[in-house]
């Protein structure tokens, strides 16, 4: 009995184990900014130079369509972070005010969804406001307008960057719960959890990784198409040339089914980065 009690004394508490785990993860993550610099695609070729032939072949194939990559920190928020930067950068470059107005209407819908689901507005409004501020500041010719350099700085800033990521997590969770009947079969099959448990444990906390359920929900809720290019081992056979697969997430009810998504992400197992398409 005494020995057993002594054993319990020795064992670190759950919160201590967790703090240690977080410390390791934080130290690891800080080797890279939340979003890195734009790098030529050749850095990928270098990364896989001594890797498996299927990866090498696929990286070469990628070079036919894409020119550059921008890495996101591997802290479990990389999908949301990549989406944030890729989307805002596109708006800054194209000055597409019609798209800004459209997404602002989608954000109003997201807000209604969250309130209908029982969230007090004050729990999400700070996060929403920060995202809307970024949307408005990428359009030029206003007092609050920002340059690409400032956009990069902001997406690297802990406060702005994490608030936008958190807003996307609210939106994603709201969309999944609003359309429980649609999402539940995917979630059950993948995780064995119901929709509420899934949102609580895999969507709402910062640092929880994303997969196709999160991407579908965010893309649908904001009405923004997303292309994910897969760099993995699939098609690993000698007798046919490696194909690089991609999947387009087209928002439900979107008229633009024939348009290529402008948010393009590179998926490698467990991680998302941003890809840049070759201009004609």
């Amino acid at each position: 009995m005494d020995a057993e009690a002594g054993g319990e004394e020795e064992r670190p508490r759950d919160d201590e184990i967790l703090a240690f785990h977080n410390q390791i993860r934080a130290a690891d993550a800080e080797k890279l900014e939340f979003v890195g610099d734009k790098e030529p695609l050749s850095v990928l070729a270098a990364e896989y130079a001594s890797g498996s032939p299927v990866f090498k072949a696929k990286v070469e194939k990628l070079g036919q369509t894409y020119v550059a990559i921008r890495r996101a920190r591997g802290d479990g928020n990389c999908f949301f972070r990549s989406f944030m930067f890729s989307y805002l950068e596109h708006l800054l470059v194209t000055q597409d005010e019609v798209e800004v107005a459209r997404v602002e209407r989608s954000i109003e819908e997201c807000k209604k969804t969250l309130i209908d689901l029982g969230h007090a507005e004050f729990t999400f409004e700070d996060f929403l406001v920060i995202f809307v501020e970024q949307l408005q500041s990428v359009i030029q010719g206003r007092e609050t307008s920002i340059s690409l350099e400032t956009l990069i700085e902001r997406c690297r800033d802990q406060y702005v960057s994490n608030y936008v990521v958190m807003f996307f997590r609210f939106v994603t969770s709201g969309e999944i719960r609003r359309r429980t009947d649609f999402f539940e079969p995917f979630i059950l099959g993948m995780s064995g959890m119901n929709v509420v448990q899934f949102c609580r444990s895999a969507v709402e906390p910062m640092g929880e990784e994303s997969d196709h359920v999160h991407i579908t929900a965010l893309s649908d809720a904001l009405g923004v198409p997303v292309r994910v290019v897969y760099l993995d081992r699939s098609g690993d056979t000698d007798d046919k040339p490696a194909e690089v697969n991609h999947h387009d997430f087209i928002p439900v009810g979107s008229p633009q089914t024939t348009v290529d998504p402008f948010v393009v992400l590179l998926y490698r197992p467990g991680h998302y980065d941003i890809l840049y398409t070759k201009q004609e």
Binding site: D14, D15, L18, H119, A120, F122, T123, F124, F127, M166, R169, F170, S173, R200, S201, E204, P205, M206
Partner: peptide
């Protein structure tokens, strides 16, 4: 869990 690794600002 919500006071530790599953915390989210979604809670008030």
């Amino acid at each position: 869990d919500i006071l530790q690794n599953q915390w989210s600002p979604i809670y008030d």
